[in-house]
C-alpha cells in the first residue's frame, strides 16, 4: 500500500517545486487541451520531447515518472494494439496471414493453463505472456500439414498506425505531466491551489472552501488510517487470520475482518474530531483567515504564458495543417 507512486509527493527543489500550485493546475489543463488540439503526429512527437525535456530542468527523476507510467503500461499497450487492429482506414501497410489449426490452438490453451498455474511461482507479466502466445500462433500457422479451421489476416493500416501512435503519445504526455505535478507539489498545496482555482464555482453555490477542508482532513488522516489498518491486520493475524494467502472465500473474510473495525474506529474518530474542531470555534461556511498564502512570482507568469502560447500554437498549426 505504501508503493503507490501516482499522487505521491517527493521532496525536492527546483523551479517546478516553487511554482504556484494555481499555475501548475491551470498549466496542466491548458497543456492537456493542447494535446487534444494537435493534429499532426510530428507536432505531437515534439510536444512529448518538450515534456521529457522538462524533467531534467525540473530535477525530476525519469525513473520516478516511469514508475508512474508502469501501472498504466497495460492500458497503453492495449489501446495501441486495439487501434492498430480495428482501424482499417488508409493505406495498407502490413498484412500477416494467420491460420488457426489444432496444434497452435491447443498450444495456446496449454500455455494459458500453465500461465495460470505458474504465475504464482514465476513472476512474468501478462504482457510477455501475450507476446509468447502471439509468436506461437504465428509460428505454427506456417505448418501447412495441419488443416487450418480458420484463416484470418493481421493487417496494419496507415491511419490505424498513426491514430494508435497519437493516442499512445497523448496518454504518455498526460500521465507524465500529471505525475510531474503530483511529484513536485505537496498534497496540501495542491488542495489549496484547487480551492483557489475553483473559487469562481462559489457563484453557482458550490462551497469550494468546505470541499477543500474535507479533502485536507482526508489528507491529514490517510497516514493515521494506514497505521491503524496495519495494527488491525496484526491484531487479526494474531487471532489466526491469514492475510497473505487464501481462496476467494478467505479473502472475503480477511477484508471484512479489516473493514469492520476500520469503519467503527473511523466513525468514532470523526465524531471526536468534529467535537475538537467545533470546540476550536470552527463554524462551517463562516469566513476564515488563512495561514497558507499563495504568492504570485515572475516565474508563475512565465509558465502561464508558455502554457497559453502552446495552446495558441497548437491551434495555429492545426488550422495551417488542414
Amino acid at each position: 500500500m505504501k508503493n503507490i507512486v501516482i499522487g505521491r509527493y517527493i521532496p525536492g527543489n527546483s523551479f517546478l517545486y516553487r511554482l504556484d500550485p494555481r499555475v501548475k493546475l491551470i498549466a496542466l489543463v491548458l497543456l492537456f487541451a493542447a494535446t487534444f488540439i494537435i493534429s499532426d503526429i510530428w507536432v505531437m512527437v515534439g510536444a512529448l520531447g518538450f515534456v521529457i525535456a522538462l524533467l531534467p530542468i525540473g530535477k525530476i527523476s525519469l525513473k520516478r515518472v516511469f514508475q508512474g507510467l508502469k501501472p498504466l503500461l497495460f492500458l497503453l499497450i492495449f489501446t495501441f494494439v486495439f487501434q492498430i487492429l480495428f482501424n482499417t482506414q488508409g493505406r495498407l501497410l502490413i498484412a500477416i496471414p494467420l491460420q488457426f489449426n489444432i496444434v497452435n490452438t491447443l498450444l495456446a490453451f496449454a500455455l494459458f493453463g500453465s500461465w495460470l498455474f505458474l504465475k504464482r511461482k514465476i513472476k512474468f507479466t501478462f504482457l510477455s505472456f501475450l507476446l509468447v502466445l502471439g509468436l506461437i500462433v504465428y509460428g505454427f500457422s506456417e505448418l501447412t500439414m495441419f488443416v487450418p479451421y480458420n484463416t484470418s489476416t493481421l493487417a496494419v493500416y496507415e491511419t490505424g498506425l498513426t491514430m494508435a501512435l497519437f493516442i499512445l503519445l497523448r496518454l504518455i504526455i498526460i500521465v507524465t505531466l500529471s505525475t510531474v505535478l503530483t511529484i513536485s507539489t505537496k498534497p496540501t498545496d495542491l488542495n489549496l491551489g484547487l480551492e483557489r482555482v475553483l473559487k469562481p464555482l462559489k457563484l453557482v453555490r458550490v462551497n469550494t472552501e468546505e470541499i477543500a477542508m474535507i479533502i485536507g482532513i482526508a489528507l491529514r488522516y490517510i497516514p493515521t488510517l494506514l497505521d491503524e489498518a496495519n495494527k488491525i491486520m496484526l491484531a487479526q493475524a494474531s487471532r489466526g487470520v491469514d492475510f497473505q494467502e487464501g481462496k476467494f472465500k478467505d479473502k472475503v473474510v480477511q477484508i471484512i475482518s479489516l473493514l469492520v473495525p476500520m469503519f467503527i474506529i473511523s466513525f468514532q474518530r470523526s465524531d471526536e474530531l468534529a467535537n475538537a474542531m467545533e470546540a476550536r470555534c470552527f463554524v462551517p461556511g463562516k469566513p476564515r483567515t488563512r495561514l497558507n498564502q499563495l504568492t504570485w512570482k515572475p516565474i508563475d507568469s512565465l509558465v502561464l504564458g508558455i502554457s497559453i502560447m502552446s495552446v495558441i500554437t497548437s491551434i495555429t498549426l492545426r488550422i495551417l495543417g488542414s
Partner: peptide, 30 residues
C-alpha cells in the same frame, strides 16, 4: 479544551497548520 485522544484533535497536516486552525477560525489577521 484538550481531549483524551491526541490523534483525534489534530486537524492540520503539520504542527504549524494545526496551531493555526483555531486562529483561522477566529479570523486572526495573517
Amino acid at each position: 479544551i484538550i481531549f483524551q485522544n491526541p490523534d483525534n484533535q489534530f486537524v492540520g497536516v503539520t504542527v504549524r497548520d494545526d496551531i493555526a486552525f483555531g486562529l483561522e477560525n477566529l479570523q486572526v489577521p495573517y
